[in-house]
């Protein structure tokens, strides 16, 4: 039976190990990508200010919308009751439509809040205008409202598509990546761009006169794939050598002949586009799509990496 103090020390020790690992990863990522830490701080500040400002604006718009809609709906219903002398059931039905409209509007506002679009105040004004038209006509059916809502939704989706201009088209929405480890650096390759993960079970053929990062040719299913020493290619200054130290997996990029050697393959994770600090492809590390601070990893831009390798090979 463990002594209570002993278990406490184990907990403390594991906490210390966690801290040490975290610090190590921070240092490693900071050393490899010095801009990440600065970017992270800047990103956090931006996010805080962005989260605060639109929210206060949205809240005022929501309040205004709700108040004005109710007023419109009530006055219209009163006019109808006195002029047309409809039955109580009919007036209830009429009242039900504006309530549904109001519910729709609140839903839209909620969706837009989560999307946090920059041009939200304009969108809100437009929706308020449309609600007024709909409530005044009072002939709009629920089907028409749904159609309208869908149209509005499609209109609102367009600005979302441009939210991450540095990100590829497929990364505008949540996407899956495979995490793998290269000499302590965690890399992520989008599943979208992944060819195959091959467990290395035989020797790689060495081709003479190739640079150090070119390990050789690996035969898989009667075709040969070229194996890149991932560590030497992306961080040559670190002095790692996978050909010497060994590697257990090669990851095929798209369906190309190029594969990345790595020691360990982790799991797949789903990333939201805003989890990635997207990079411009104009910089010196064109193979790097961006960095994912949540997972302390670098996201590989597979197409650019293939282009780089092909360019070096031509």
């Amino acid at each position: 039976m463990n002594h209570p103090n002993q278990s406490k020390s184990v907990v403390l020790e594991s906490a210390n190990v966690g801290t040490v690992v975290q610090e190590y990863m921070d240092n490693l990522l900071g050393e490899l990508f010095p801009d990440v830490l600065e970017d992270l701080e800047a990103q956090t500040e931006e996010k805080m200010t962005a989260d605060l400002e639109p929210l206060s604006a949205e809240q005022s718009v929501v309040t205004a919308l709700t108040v004005s809609d109710k007023h419109e709906v009530e006055s219209d219903a009163a006019v109808q009751a006195s002029d047309v002398q409809r039955s109580q059931a009919e007036s209830d039905a009429i009242n039900a439509v504006p309530q549904a409209v109001e519910a729709e509007v609140v839903e839209q506002v909620t969706v837009e809040q989560s999307a946090a679009a920059i041009s939200e105040p304009e969108v809100q004004l437009q929706s308020a205008h449309e609600v007024e038209i709909q409530t005044s006509t009072e002939t709009t059916t629920e089907e028409a409202l749904e159609t309208k809502t869908q149209e509005q939704a499609s209109v609102y989706k367009k600005p979302d598509a441009l939210r991450y201009p540095k990100a590829p088209v497929w990364a505008q929405q949540a996407f899956d990546v495979l995490l793998f480890d290269v000499c302590g650096l965690k890399l992520a390759v989008p599943m979208e761009s992944l060819g195959k993960i091959i467990k290395v079970d035989h020797e790689t053929n060495q081709l003479i006169g190739r640079p150090d990062w070119f390990i050789g040719a690996y035969i898989e299913n009667e075709q040969h794939l070229y194996v890149v020493d991932t560590a030497q290619y992306i961080m040559p200054e670190k002095g790692f050598n996978l050909a010497r130290d060994g590697f257990d997996y090669v990851i095929q990029l798209q369906r190309s002949k190029w594969t990345l050697a790595c020691k360990k393959v982790h799991n797949t994770v789903r990333l939201e586009p805003d989890q990635v600090k997207w990079r411009s492809q104009q910089g010196k590390r064109q193979w790097l799509s961006g960095t994912v601070v949540d997972h302390m990893c670098a996201l590989i831009h597979v197409d650019s990496l293939i282009d780089l390798l092909e360019a070096e090979a031509s």
């Binding site: 190739r210 640079p211 070096e312």
Partner: peptide, 16 residues
């Protein structure tokens, strides 16, 4: 083969 690198040795290989 991919013509990577600048070493003269790489030119020895005609193909694979």
């Amino acid at each position: 083969t991919p013509n990577v690198g600048n070493e003269e040795t790489a030119k020895f290989i005609q193909g694979v």
